[in-house]
Amino acid sequence: MGSAIVLRDVGFAYDGQMVLQHCHLDIEEGAFVLVTGPNGSGKSTLLKLIAGVLCPDCGEILILGQPPPHPGMGYVPQYASLRANHPVSVLGVVLMGLTTPSLGCHYSARERERAHRALMAVGLAEMAQRRPDALSGGQRQRLLLARALVSEPRLLVLDEPSASLDHEGRQALTTILGRQHGITVVLATHDTTTFAALATQVLAMGHPGEQAMALHQAS
């Protein structure tokens, strides 16, 4: 199996404050990697670099052999990234997962069908015409997962997907993630116990200021 994610000597700083330095990483396709570490250790920054939301100050990142952002990647940011009170339906949010940098005005019937299937997969099909503001925290998280899954990605990157979820919400999330066979998953979380059964590897980030980043097999 080839590499899904490769980082070579990657560094990144916010306003001169180093967050990641000399980072090397090689994640194989099909792995389920939990990214753990204290607040400020750079978990979200690492995921944003992988997703192509941020550009590294130095070094090289390859996602499935190409620099990010990669079309075969599904990214689940923290819910706050979706603007509150935005005029969009739940179905509309999922359709965004099929948007690419190209001209186009409408979504085809086939694309709508795919979006409906993605909503069914996360148990939100009946809420397709609601606005996302009307959903609970757990439902919103599943909505963002549906948006990432609708493009049938080879790599799934999730940033704190279980934050603010109750026990039932976490269970629903792990069930859906457990069904994604063959997809490489990189998931940043403080909540390692919820995803322990799914994880094949753990990437432990060092404390803020330290540059240690260790990838090891999940126990």
Binding site: K48, G52, L82, M96, G97
Partner: peptide, 14 residues
């Protein structure tokens, strides 16, 4: 539509 709803996600879609 995507840029207006979620600029961060829009960036990840290229």
């Amino acid at each position: 539509a995507l840029f207006s709803a979620d600029p961060q996600y829009a960036q990840s879609r290229g």
